[in-house]
Nucleic acid binder design. Structure first.
Lengths: 247, 247
DNA sequence: CGAGATCTTGATGAAGTTCAAGGCGCGTGG
DNA sequence: CCACGCGCCTTGAACTTCATCAAGATCTCG
């Protein structure tokens, strides 16, 4: 089922998400304790990691890959409610069934903890609880930003918003703030973008084509995107372009 | 400016939100410590409590009344991103400027703490940090539910969703689960409902009229609503009506 | 009672969806 | 190696839903 995906790190010290994940504030002793209860899981692109309503015996951190959190209505309409990137936390302490579907968009590696040992440790370890609070507050901010996109932006603005979110994230890995030329690959299909933005995949396709015709983006294939002028893209997204980032 | 709104309680022991707010897990000693640094603020209906970007020297809990959290684009489009009800927490530890506009919808009383004493105390008091984490996770769930509404529901479903959220909340104060007949007052204007749902106020008005004509709701005046059959309303909202509530 | 805020209703039009057809890219098997 | 099939994407045409503009009704409060 899970063919050998990218090999996972075994020592927390060398973990690529060491400084951003829920464990980021832990000291050496705490890390040792975590190390004793952690284990890795791998998923292939397309695989469903969790179904909404499933019992889930573990929580964990994304180590590599991209996954989506989606909600579905009986008639099949679906809305993405979260995009899980490396270092993001999956699962909610204190709840034992999954609230949303979690689907791997690319090959994914997660660093998992069985729920009850983790909850015990969290109760004893303010470093973990604090970091989780921080991360949850950040997610809440992201969700609220997203609500403005869903509720009030036009299709074109929605696409531009999504592109600039991805562009900024990719750029911020390399260096400081994204300006001028930015290049990245879309980690999502057109359909996933539609589910993210509350659109149909046809509208997504049309608006991407329109942005390309207008020179806001350059496409190489369907996934490889060049943004010649990041300010222009942010303009199209309708955001305040004062460049202010939340701290 | 702030005329004498509803008189605030002074002892935490008698506080109406004692068992739900951020202080709900505190023991007697912790309450005493909080009591020493707390103070009350009152706002009149319509007053802006905070402007996005403002320096905010305090955090606090809603004691009574209703307020909204909104985000605005330069051209005036606005989206509500949170509805603050009694016991809800306002402000984010670790951030010192407000991210959103906070507007009192009715007369409001808040129980406030200056930020740095509160943060100090939170660092020493796991009871507070834990409760805040719980509350934040609940808010995140609510935001995600809301994202499905904004992204994928029709105007009629949006209105039905909002009505059933309000109806369920009001009913859950009284007793267990809402079924059959429910009566409540809308705490929001048509415009605020529109900002909540990503619609125009005209569409809100039309859809409310339509639900009335179809017998899903009965209106007495513009604000007083009777839902003869809660299941019918939930059906209209397009939610799974298995009645399952998140725990 | 009157004035302003809030709400309703109608007519028109634009934005996005739906349905439909076809293209591109890629891996598989002949 | 090429053809075929399949997943993913693009584009077009007709249609639906909701926004916009506009007028008037109702409520509320001094």
């Amino acid at each position: 089922m899970t063919k050998h995906a990218k090999l996972a790190p075994s020592a927390c010290g060398e973990c690529p998400i060491r400084h951003r994940a829920v464990c980021s504030k832990c000291d050496a002793d705490e890390l040792t304790e975590l190390e004793a209860i952690k284990y890795y899981r791998s998923y292939e692109a397309g695989q469903t990691i969790l179904w909404a309503g499933d019992q889930m015996g573990f929580v964990g951190s994304m180590v590599s890959g991209v996954a989506t959190l989606t909600q579905t209505m009986e008639d099949g309409r679906t809305q993405m409610v979260g995009l899980l990137l490396p270092s993001d936390f999956v699962g909610r302490p204190g709840r034992d069934s999954a609230a949303y579907n979690v689907v791997a968009t690319s090959d994914v590696v997660m660093c998992c903890f069985r729920k009850s040992p983790f909850e015990d440790m969290m109760a004893r370890t303010p470093h973990i609880a604090h970091r989780l609070l921080q991360m949850t507050l950040d997610e809440l901010d992201a969700a609220r930003e997203w609500m403005l996109v869903l509720g009030r932006k036009t299709a074109r603005e929605k696409i531009a918003s999504l592109l600039s979110i991805i562009a900024r994230r990719d750029a911020s890995l390399g260096l400081g703030v994204a300006t001028g030329r930015v290049v990245f690959d879309l980690p999502l299909t057109r359909e996933a973008m539609a589910d993210y933005l509350g659109l149909t995949l046809e509208t997504v396709s049309r608006q991407i084509s329109a942005l390309r015709k207008d020179g806001v983006i350059v496409l190489d294939g369907k996934r490889h995107v060049t943004v010649p002028d990041m300010d222009r893209l942010m303009d199209e997204a309708g955001d305040d372009n004062d460049g202010g980032m939340l701290i």
